[in-house]
Design a protein around this nucleic acid. Sequence first.
DNA 1: GCGTACATGTTCCAGTAGCG
DNA 2: CGCTACTGGAACATGTACGC
Length: 361
Amino acid sequence: MLKYEAEERELLDGLIGAIGMLPDGHAEIDGLEVAIGPRGRVDALVDAQIGGQAVQLLVETKREAFPRDVRETVWQLRNHLAHMPANREILPFFIARAISPGARDILREERVGFYDLGGSLYIPARHAFVYVDRPVPKKNAKSFGSLFHGQKARVVQAIFDRRSEWLSVKELAESTEVSPATVSATLTELERREWVDVEGAGPSKLRRLRSAKALIDAWSSYVADQKPPKLARYYVPGSNALELAQQLDRACRDADAGYAVTAEAAAQLYAPYLSSISQVKCRIEPGRRQEEALERLNARAVSEGWNLGLIETRARGDVTVAESIQDVRLASPLQVYLDLLQGSGRSREMAAHLRSERLDA
DNA sequence: GCGTACATGTTCCAGTAGCG
DNA sequence: CGCTACTGGAACATGTACGC
């Protein structure tokens, strides 16, 4: 509790400072925890001078802001506003350590001012319009990306793959082998971003993906900020990618090793694009079985001229197969898409093609 | 209709793995 | 080596179904 108050204070000081940096700008705190109307309360009132005009800011504070948080707060602020004397300009105002892009859009539409620790500042006052857009602060970027990590990423993948279905926590927990606690947390985060529709409540609660496009976009930009995973390069005697992938299939079956082909080779099977490709990227369940599969393939580790690339797998469940085409087990289209985005050369084009063929539907 | 038992979703907490 | 953030077990909350 004390820690939160300190954070709140830090945010307010940041806002005061940011307004002070504006030409003819000045601001001071008029009150904290101010009662408004019969039972309303705002976190702070701030008196601001901007370009010679006085504006009072009705401030609500949050740690992080996703669309749903913002909507709730905007509604509260509007309520408060109705109980305020109308003798001067009063602006509803929202501050948080980090405000997600979607949340910013809502605030701008609603003409509610906002500020975050990244330095973004939006003040839609009558006589002085201020808008400074800064990216989400690095430190907090990971809190926005946590959905695309580890176990939660598996859950999000599953939700995407079954985007036409209404899903329960229990069902997802069973099919992904992730604990119900983590599945629930994942879905709650998706709700905050307003990417899922919700039906029912309590034990009969169901969700369904609504904004597949927003989800892909967010995951893509997350991937863009990540360093590409390590790729172990091998050469396997043989010819084209399809045949190589089929050899891989036999070797992994014989070695009883789980594998999933991804990137260019997989995209080519999902939605043919290039006339021919020569390299196969895949994930193979790590351990002894992986070694055995590589031995059966006569794969030789090389630094140049590779045709088999092994993407490092860390978290359990990284190797998941969505379907088999021509006896080749493929990672899910979304996974393939994300892996293509990590690649270079024409992989971006392939990614775009795959997306329009398989993901945007 | 009402209350109770059950199933499921959510939150809390502590152990732990990964990171710098 | 210290720290942070993730994870999942367990306690807690919330609907639902069934019996009366």
